[in-house]
Design a protein around this nucleic acid. Sequence first.
DNA 1: CACCCCCGCGCG
DNA 2: AAAGCGCGCGGGGGTG
Length: 562
Amino acid sequence: MHLLLVPADDDAVRLARLDAHGVLLGEPWQLGREDLPAAVAGLERDEAPRWVWDTTSDLYSALLQAGTRLARCHDISLARTVLRFSTLVQDPDYARFALDVTGSAEYPVSDAVEPEQRQESLFEAPRSHRSLEEVRQEFAAQLKAVETSRAPARLRLLLAAESAAALVAAEMRFLGVPWDQAVHRELLEEALGPEPAPGRRPALMEDLVVRLRELLRAPRLNPDSPQELLKTLHRNGIEVKTTRQWELKSSDHPAIEPLLEYKKLSRLHTANGWTWLDAWIRDGRFRPDYVVGGVVTGRWSSRGGGALQIPRSVRRAARALPGWKLLVADASQVEPRILAAMSADEGMARAARGQDLYAEIADAGFGGSRSSAKIALLGAMYGSTTGESARLMPQLKKLYPRAIALVEEAARTGERGGAVSTWLGRSTPPPGPDWDAAQRTQSQEEQRRADAWARARGRFTRNFVVQGTAAEWAECWLAGIRSRLAGLPLPDGAEAASPTGPAELVFFLHDEIMIHAPEELMPRCVEAVESAAREAGTLLFGRAPVDFPLTVAVVDSYDQAK
DNA sequence: CACCCCCGCGCG
DNA sequence: AAAGCGCGCGGGGGTG
């Protein structure tokens, strides 16, 4: 049973029951927005439907704020992103349908807004109103596209995982990562000195600027300007081509050490300093926007606060509340394990059965050198053509012919302008309008550029199949964790404070999750995370002989994990 | 003033 | 040590 939810205007939502093919069952009806949460909660309890809507965050955020958690949904816009390019889809009508809806937009855009502009009203205003019938038709077209596709089960799983991920993302933003302002301010002061006036450099950075100006004999140097810095370095005989840290490290000039220190502090100050705290931490929680499927490979992206780049240096401030703990679980070496499973390469699958895949590969063919094995394998998945990884490739190819063939075939397809797909059927978008003309060019100079473009696209498609399938595994893992946590009992004496239950799934970073929960619930959470990982492997690959081991830490603050 | 690109660096 | 993939963000510096 499906329940379709379509915003009608500023204060109403239309609902309709649909059958398994998206056909109307009975008459649609309408509810005022203020009545919606209670009505939805009742329908969820009585009918346990799959909720169908265009964009999860448009409606679900408000439901969460009203205290309603939902078990499952179908996010039409996420499904559209997958289905419009998927090479598994054969329905000739669907691509046209998707194009009509999306117009020329290539990828989903976040509805993120600046935090101070965020409306905390119950419902965010939808960007455009489509009628219930239009939305229903698109949903029905999606169901048909899946059922008539070359692999309905895979696409069904992918769309279910994406929709579950959309629920998780909304819940994560609703809950937020617990963030201790005081600890954060402490570590800022420790590193940078007292909070400066707005627009001013912190004291310890200013001290370094004074030293740099003396050491480089440049009394007006602004080290934040790469151009200016580069000229100044050259005047002092420091012959670097860029001002990147790794290149600066090659010089032993006395100004280098304070310069690197300045860059480190500057990064902390501008990216996660006091301004960041004021902008992003409310009521002790960090609530960024997560954009499910925001990356072309299917990974999540985020908007605001640099949510997926929280540097190690500030992780101490992500802290569990008193009596609670953080569970940080990290799936080890996911991409090579995915490659082993996808390619059914027996040798690599054997290596992927242990805790440390790189060590197994090292023993199997690299004289026990784990670092060589790792460099070789990463090079194979990223398309490295130079240096040590290129030198090690022949050996890797001999050891794991099927695995290497899979990524090389993906690269060749991409170089030709073709599409490649993940295990569950997310495909690369076509290369863009200029591709064909560029590849047909006559001039030698343009031909060189076209070849470079083709090689770059080959590296992209090579990595796409692995990164994208890893993202699918991770979303299945996430969905499994979500449903298991929902079944956990409240600890004795605890009240149901949150619609998402006693354990809070608060963070997700490609192959890592964080749960914030009462300490006594942690054993149950660890079991949930581990059994969900096993289930994710089985969902994708059946009884594949590949393990997806986790590193699990139960800690008080994020920095204590790993 | 807004807008865009480049640079550099944080994360996986 | 980075390299080879995928991102977001803030500052500088140019343009309109």
